[in-house]
Nucleic acid binder design. Sequence first.
DNA 1: TGGCTGACTTTCG
DNA 2: ACGAAAGCCAGCC
Length: 110
Amino acid sequence: MMKTNFFEMVYEVVKLIPKGRATSYGAIANYLGTGRSARMVGWAMNAAHNLYDVPAHRVVNRNGQLSGKNHFENPRRMEELLESEGIHVSNDQIENFDKVFWDPNLELAI
DNA sequence: TGGCTGACTTTCG
DNA sequence: ACGAAAGCCAGCC
């Protein structure tokens, strides 16, 4: 995908995350080519939460922790959304993150 | 124009 | 093994 804006690229990747799956900021950053700038992905989410219809709850840090839950309208919302999609969350962390992890580099053809 | 910031990640001490 | 610090880059004062 050749988007002019970094944000839109992030949004598209996040939208492509299958239901019941989750990915990490670093994975998206790596897919976009920004590499180590995983912080920007999270920052893009911050800008996206109201402007675009992006399932930001499917994006967590590399440990599967809901690091961005505080940036939702209600911190509980992120966990509820994940649970509603079949992803079990325990103590603000995704269970079996190895299984639900969805790597854009692996699943998407560049 | 220049510097600060950030929902991360990795590495050094 | 745990804690602190740097690295990364695009938007926003």
